[in-house]
Simulated scan of single mutants.
Amino acid sequence: MALFNNKKAKSELEKRQKRFSKKDLLSLVSKEKTLKEKFTRQERLKMHFSDFMVLFAMLRDYATRKYTKVPWFIISSIGAALLYVISPLDLIPDFIPFVGYLDDATVLAFCLKLVYKDIVLYKTWKEETHPKTASTS
């Protein structure tokens, strides 16, 4: 099995991002509990839990039209990455010991680099509009 690398992560994210729809967004928002469990149980994903929380809050706020100052490309990239994480059909099956979540973590890390500026803008908006909940969402 070839090592999963950034080039493969980029390709996989781009492929899934192009297919991501508003229907997928609404479905993903309803899977918060499943995603939280995955991010808290799997070692390779635990270090990204706080990132996940911000990404998920951004998706939820976009879906509920509270925050729409972000291009669809960014939302669909985040959504595609999170769907990849919970998908049983990914490039390295999750049940393989030691490497099963390597691809999930790599796709997520690539997505974080891609959307970094938008995350900063979102956090600023969240702090300005909801100062008490910004750090917990």
Rank of each mutant, 00 (worst) to 15 (best):
E43M: 05
E43F: 10
E43I: 14
R44H: 12
R44V: 05
L45D: 11
L45T: 11
L45I: 14
L45V: 15
K46T: 04
K46L: 07
M47G: 08
M47N: 12
M47L: 11
M47Y: 13
M47P: 09
H48S: 05
H48V: 12
H48M: 11
F49K: 01
F49L: 03
F49H: 02
F49Q: 01
F49C: 00
S50Y: 13
D51A: 12
D51Q: 05
D51W: 09
D51V: 03
F52Q: 00
F52V: 08
F52W: 05
M53F: 01
M53R: 06
M53D: 04
V54M: 11
V54E: 12
L55H: 09
L55T: 08
L55G: 12
F56A: 01
F56H: 08
F56I: 04
A57W: 02
M58S: 01
M58R: 03
M58I: 04
M58L: 09
L59A: 02
L59V: 10
L59C: 09
R60T: 15
R60I: 06
R60L: 08
D61H: 14
D61F: 10
Y62V: 11
Y62L: 13
Y62M: 08
A63Q: 07
A63L: 06
A63M: 07
A63H: 04
T64K: 09
T64R: 15
T64D: 12
R65T: 13
R65E: 14
R65C: 07
R65N: 15
K66T: 08
Y67S: 09
Y67C: 02
Y67T: 05
Y67V: 05
T68C: 12
T68V: 15
T68Y: 14
T68W: 10
K69F: 15
K69M: 11
V70G: 06
V70H: 01
V70T: 10
V70M: 05
P71E: 04
P71I: 00
P71R: 06
P71Y: 01
W72Y: 13
W72A: 06
W72N: 09
W72M: 14
F73G: 13
F73H: 13
F73C: 09
F73D: 15
I74A: 04
I74S: 02
I74N: 02
I74P: 04
I74C: 04
I74E: 00
I75L: 04
I75W: 03
S76K: 12
S76N: 05
S77N: 04
S77V: 01
I78S: 00
I78P: 01
I78F: 02
G79D: 07
G79K: 04
G79C: 13
G79V: 10
A80W: 07
A80L: 06
A80E: 08
A81I: 05
A81C: 02
A81E: 01
A81R: 01
L82Y: 02
L82N: 03
L83I: 10
L83D: 15
L83Y: 12
L83C: 13
L83M: 15
Y84D: 10
Y84G: 07
Y84H: 12
Y84F: 11
V85M: 02
V85S: 00
V85F: 03
V85C: 06
